[in-house]
């Protein structure tokens, strides 16, 4: 087995804390609480969980858009936690992020051509219109759109513009934070196909953050399930779908709609999240090759 492209160990990130002016303690939220995962080159790891489970925070901290409180992140064999902006800059070209809301992810006052070209300009690479046009074509956009402003585009087109910007520097790793959640269902499949197409052509690895499990099954090789800042189960995607071990994973899978009214729905187990906060001392155990479950 080759080395992972990115390896995260024991990552923690919490918000709040400290004291108010009057000395009262502010509550601490552990958004990400001791998680570990890795992504191999060219692989897609799905990160799933409900709202507030810490998926997005995990994605942002992995790219060092926010500092980690604790833990290590090794990217292409190099420790990146604690690097300054200057040391981080060359690495920024290798790892990119695609955001959930395609409306808020584009600068409304910038022509989309300039927006896609910006990473090239920042990294002093060739930002010739021909290169930008090539990026537009790669993401299924008409290069004639380059001189337009974001408000003239639909949600799907905007997400393509974001993708074009993210791949401009030929990264090896992309964190996609619920990139299709805000889109029409009819558009979602197109964007997912674009993700796969770009993965095949550019050898990209994705950390695909989602809560739509059927999309994760379609796109990802491995999946990690997050609950309250912890990863409770991780493993190959088919293995998890066939044999979910953690009660939370089982309840997530049971919630997937079955598109055939005649087929019996799997028996639903309602999982009470608030009564099942993972214990602090809980540890992962390997139940099958590559399939880990947090032990209660």
């Amino acid at each position: 087995m080759s080395d992972p492209l990115i390896e995260v160990r024991g990552l923690r990130r919490s918000y709040g804390g400290g004291r108010t002016l009057l000395g009262a303690e502010k509550p601490v939220t552990h958004a990400v609480n001791d998680i570990s995962f890795h992504v191999m080159p060219g692989e897609t790891l799905g990160l799933v969980g409900e709202s507030g489970s810490g998926k997005s925070t995990a994605g942002r901290v992995t790219l060092q858009l926010e500092p980690a409180d604790e833990g290590s992140i090794r990217f292409e064999g190099r420790e990146i936690t604690g690097l300054g902006a200057r040391e981080m800059k060359p690495l920024r070209a290798r790892m990119q992020m695609i955001f959930q809301d395609p409306y808020s992810a584009l600068n409304p006052r910038m022509k989309v051509g300039a927006f896609v070209a910006e990473p090239l300009v920042v990294h002093k690479q060739d930002a010739h219109p021909d290169r930008v046009a090539e990026l537009f074509r790669m993401t299924g956009l008409d290069p004639a759109f380059m001189s337009r402003y974001p408000h003239e585009f639909s949600g799907g087109q905007r997400q393509r513009i974001n993708i074009a910007r993210a791949i401009a520097l030929n990264p090896s790793f992309i964190v996609a934070d619920e990139p299709i959640t805000a889109l029409d269902v009819s558009i979602q499949a197109q964007i997912v196909n674009l993700f796969q197409d770009l993965q095949d052509r550019l050898g990209l690895a994705y950390l695909f953050i989602a809560h739509d499990l059927s999309m994760v099954r379609y796109l990802c090789q491995r999946v990690a399930v997050m609950l309250r800042g912890r990863i409770v189960e991780t493993g190959p995607v088919e293995q998890i779908f066939a044999d979910p071990r953690h009660p939370y994973t089982r309840s997530l899978l049971a919630a997937i709609p079955v598109p055939d009214p005649d087929r019996p729905r799997p028996k639903r187990e309602i999982f009470d999240v608030s009564a099942n906060i993972p214990a602090r001392e809980a540890a992962m155990a390997e139940v099958a090759p590559g399939h880990f479950v947090l032990q209660p």
């Binding site: 858009l65 955001f99 910007r165």
Partner: peptide, 16 residues
Amino acid sequence: REFVQSARAIGASGWR
């Protein structure tokens, strides 16, 4: 806003 986050993700400087 996400476009500012995105500018940070490409390594743009604070001034930029």
